[in-house]
């Protein structure tokens, strides 16, 4: 739900990355975090298992700056894609203003894509929302996959409402910003339209052509363009063995569907680790690699000289309860 706050002179909107497990939602957000200008982004906070599967959500604020006197901010969230986590996924969807559906191009994942899209429709319905009235776009991610389905086939199976679509290779950063830009534009347009009396519902834009990867953000997509590369990345996350195993607690609740080799290191108590990356964190794999997945909020933007530590741990439903601790230091307001 858009919040318009005339006292703070702010407009806040909530954008959610949705889609099946492992489709690349968290990766999208990591790229946005890595590449957005320093002054526009806040920290990236992840509530995930040790295996880096999203457990509750990833979150980062993105500040568009001053728009006609109102500081306009997007709160970006990802949901956990695994079927098992529907209760938390639904919570993240509450009050959503726009959705980026991240689909996996692997032909074998098509049924999961369809199931997840259907699940999105149903979860929105539970909040009394009709997907056709909600700004949303679809991203066909993992275009580099050897077994990638054609865009036409994906379109006909998934894009029921003719929303804008984008090709992406998220972990190389391709297609991430064009997707977000278009959706953000649709959300802002819907706010503007609401404001003027809501003559039309914020339905999908007419554009049907899928924007190809490797194109600059603003360029409209010529359909002939080939994907930037058809070659498969040598190792789509060789550093990614750290995400192979779910946290012990989660593993007992439900073993990782992917049955990867368990990582022996770092058996942890039931608490879900919270990752917080600094604004200028270097490589993605670094973001993910986390020897000590504990809450850590770096003192970015601390205006006073005093130190600040916030420790948060959130134990979740489905298995657990939520706990938050704040420790406060310097003075801001």
């Amino acid at each position: 739900m858009v919040q318009i706050n005339f006292a703070l002179k702010e407009v806040n909107c909530k954008i959610v990355f949705y889609g099946p497990g492992m489709s690349g939602k968290t990766t999208n957000l990591e790229i946005v975090h890595e590449k957005a200008p320093e002054e526009n982004k806040g920290e990236l906070t992840s509530i995930s298992t040790d295996g880096d599967r999203t457990l509750f959500f990833d979150f980062m604020p993105l500040d568009l700056g001053n728009v006609a006197g109102m500081r306009t901010k997007f709160q970006l969230y990802t949901v956990p894609g695994q079927v098992y986590y529907n209760s938390t996924r639904k919570l993240v969807l509450q009050g959503v203003d726009g959705v980026i559906f991240v689909a996996d191009s692997d032909a074998e994942k098509m049924s999961e894509n369809i199931e997840s899209y259907q699940n999105l429709i149903e979860n929105l319905q539970e909040y009394g929302k009709d997907i056709r009235e909600l700004p949303h776009v679809i991203q066909y991610n993992k275009r580099d996959h050897a077994n990638a389905m054609s865009v036409e086939d994906m379109d006909s199976q998934l894009n029921k409402f003719g929303v804008p679509t984008f090709e992406a290779v998220a972990y190389r950063g391709e297609g991430v910003f064009p997707t977000l830009k278009t959706l953000a534009g649709m959300v802002l347009e819907s706010i503007d339209r609401m404001d003027r009396g809501g003559k039309r519902a914020p339905a999908a834009e007419p554009a049907r052509a899928t924007q190809k990867v490797g194109k600059p953000a603003a360029a409209p997509a010529p359909r002939v363009a080939a994907p930037a590369s058809t070659q498969r990345p040598s190792s789509p996350k060789s550093a990614g063995s750290n995400r192979a195993a779910a946290a012990p607690s989660m593993a007992t609740a439900r073993p990782s569907a992917r049955g990867k080799a368990p990582v022996a290191a770092n058996p942890r108590p039931a608490a879900a680790p919270m990752r917080t990356s600094t604004a200028g964190k270097p490589a993605l794999s670094q973001n993910r690699r986390q020897a000590q997945p504990v809450a850590r909020v770096p003192a970015r933007r601390a205006s006073g000289g005093l130190a600040l530590v916030i420790t948060l741990s959130v134990l979740l439903v489905g298995a657990a309860a939520g706990v938050v601790y704040f420790f406060m230091g310097s003075n801001l307001s």
């Binding site: 979150f59 901010k73 970015r300 601390a302 005093l306 916030i310 230091g329």
Partner: peptide, 17 residues
Amino acid sequence: EIKTIDIDTISALVAGS
């Protein structure tokens, strides 16, 4: 006395929990 660096994140976590 609000002494935190990131109100956005805290707000998101409070609402989530």
